[in-house]
Computed example of a mutant assay.
Amino acid sequence: MTRALVVIDMQRAFDDLSFWGQTTNPQCEANVAALADAWASRGEPVVVVRHDSVSPGSPLAPGSPGNELVAVVAGREPALRVVKSVNSAFYGDPDLHGWLQEQGIGELVICGIQTNMCVETTARMAGNLGYDVTVALDATRTFDLTTDVAGVGPVTRSAAELMLTTALELQAGGFARIATTASLVG
């Protein structure tokens, strides 16, 4: 069974903490680079996913500087580039699932931004589609989150709490295994 590395939304906009808020895991970018280097050295496919936001004023909008991929991803020639405007890489163009099936790929290692948004959604869908999924948690990052929840009021979770909750839900829920970059490149 062939495996692919799926790198999600490693875009410059996510460096704008005045827009996104506090973040965690400053090693994310270096760990994504280490995974991509390992996959390239073994001749395994890398899929790069970019989010083209349709929300007015989004720093991820096509044509904005924030839409550009970060250097550790931009300088590579992936096996496939997917552009999406929703949380799941499986709802992008070209069709990720179709391409993976054509290539005979049954195992995915997922990394990127945001842990509890696009990474988690893609991992859940991949698990539901029957892929053997691993999330390299230390090659992801997210941001503090606050919102009003009906019947509860304002709820706040730190980026670190959100990363751990995502790891718990993905692994305990049977969607994906959680791994470290070192365990995947070693």
Rank of each mutant, 00 (worst) to 15 (best):
S53N: 04
L170H: 08
G173P: 05
M117S: 13
E77T: 14
G174I: 00
L129K: 12
T140N: 13
L108K: 06
T166I: 01
Y131H: 13
L170G: 06
V49Q: 00
T115G: 11
D52G: 13
L129I: 08
N128I: 09
A34L: 10
V83G: 07
A40E: 15
E169D: 14
L168W: 13
R50S: 14
F143Y: 13
G21C: 03
S158A: 05
T2Y: 08
M10F: 01
A176N: 08
Q22T: 15
D132E: 08
Q103L: 03
P59A: 09
D9I: 01
I113Q: 06
L5C: 09
Q27T: 15
G106I: 00
E102T: 15
P94L: 02
Y91I: 06
M163R: 14
L168H: 15
G75M: 00
A167I: 03
G21E: 08
I8W: 01
G130M: 02
Q171K: 10
D15N: 09
V82K: 07
H97K: 11
P26M: 00
C118F: 02
L17A: 09
A139H: 12
A33K: 02
V7C: 03
G43S: 07
I8G: 00
C118T: 10
N128P: 09
P26L: 00
T23R: 14
D52F: 14
G57I: 04
E102G: 14
G174E: 00
V86S: 14
P154C: 07
T24K: 03
V49I: 03
W20D: 04
M117K: 06
L5Q: 05
A30H: 11
A74S: 13
P154E: 15
V47N: 00
G174M: 00
E169V: 12
A139Y: 12
R177C: 02
